[in-house]
Design a protein around this nucleic acid. Structure first.
Lengths: 206, 206
DNA sequence: TCCATTTACTACACAACTGTAGCATTCTGG
DNA sequence: CCAGAATGCTACAGTTGTGTAGTAAATGGA
């Protein structure tokens, strides 16, 4: 007890609120990338950012709010990229062509920001409820777009809703495969496999 | 403090070990069905079963072991059903026919034991690591079977590995849709949609 | 330069859960 | 019917995480 100074933690640099929030979100994202959502807690984020918990509470209204802000930030860019990789207008061309066009774009999108996409694609795995709900609602947004594309590419008489679920589930799984093993699952391989399947069906249901 | 007897918990009926284990696994399954994996803990299971924690520790070596035993028990039946719903031999007939045959069988399988399948299909959502790993390894087993079926139905020149991932992802999503809203997503609808997609491709890649 | 304000830190109280040691009760075989 | 083995219960100690009140340090304007 003779030297109290040794026990006292050196003050972290003071930082304006906006920057502090960014810094904490970065820390959270780093943890998610490293340990998955399991490892995320106010405590862990504070440690990762090199500050104490009250600092985090000063910047966010709890873990849920922090993660929501993080998702907001990341998804903004992510969804923009995603929608720009998909043709917005339901074109009624060959579905295999659609796959060959969009596939590599989506693939590149993943590799451009793997950390973000891992956080999104793995959000089902042990993410807090708020996060799952948010990602779920974004997923639904994307699915509606996919549904229109399916309807356009395969004809209105197909069950576009059901098929959009199938397409989205497939895309998500492919995304995980790419993130887990990019060497093994290349853009060409994945798009090629699907295109081959679809090219057996060059026509449309009319 | 005058009446200690009132505070003392009445002893739960004594029960042979094997039965106790069943009872605890049933309790765990009930919780998973009701609250998802979030709600599962030694404490919650003990309460649900009407006993105290040390009883649980007497029967299992912790939460992980309990859930593994539970999964063991449920998957034994589940996988058996699943494999019997899929043709074991890679038949090289029309893929749409394969879907029309296996689809309703799989659908019925879900409805026969929705609680178990929900536990399996939602295992990614907040289940402890051991459970996820176990389900993952079972998934891989199933995928290999699916891969053989795909190779058989579409010809060896297709990328059966990639497509088996797509098929499995689709099946799992369909399973969740059925469990969440059986009225809306009937066997006919789901199999019909996929069969229609495939029927555009009556031939094989040779 | 100095003090008011801002910002970070320490310390505490609380909650949920784990795992175990030791006591109480019940059941069973002699 | 009565030991003593088997089984359940209570109580405690430990862990990890939350959220907050009060204190200490840094910073910028008078």
């Amino acid at each position: 007890m003779s030297d109290q100074a040794r026990k006292r933690r050196p003050y972290a640099a003071r930082v304006p609120m906006a920057e502090r929030r960014e810094q904490l979100m970065d820390a959270a994202l780093r943890i998610i990338g490293r340990d998955g959502y399991d490892g995320v807690s106010i405590d862990a984020i504070a440690k990762e950012a090199g500050v104490t918990r009250p600092v985090v509470y000063g910047a966010f209204d709890g873990l849920g709010a922090l993660l929501m802000s993080l998702l907001e930030r990341q998804q903004q860019r992510a969804l923009l990229q995603l929608f720009s990789a998909l043709p917005q207008e339901p074109e009624d061309g060959d579905p295999a062509t659609l796959v060959r066009q969009a596939g590599p774009l989506l693939h590149q999108m993943l590799l451009d920001d793997p950390v973000t996409w891992r956080a999104i694609l793995q959000s089902a795995t042990n993410a807090p409820e708020v996060v799952r709900e948010r990602v779920e609602s974004d997923r639904e947004q994307v699915r509606v777009v996919v549904e229109r594309l399916v309807a356009g590419a395969l004809g209105k008489r197909t069950d576009a809703e059901v098929l959009s679920h199938a397409v989205l589930a497939t895309l998500e799984r492919f995304g995980q495969l790419v993130l887990d093993d990019p060497e093994r699952f290349t853009a060409e391989r994945l798009t090629g496999a699907v295109a081959a399947l679809l090219r057996l069906a060059p026509g449309r249901v009319t």
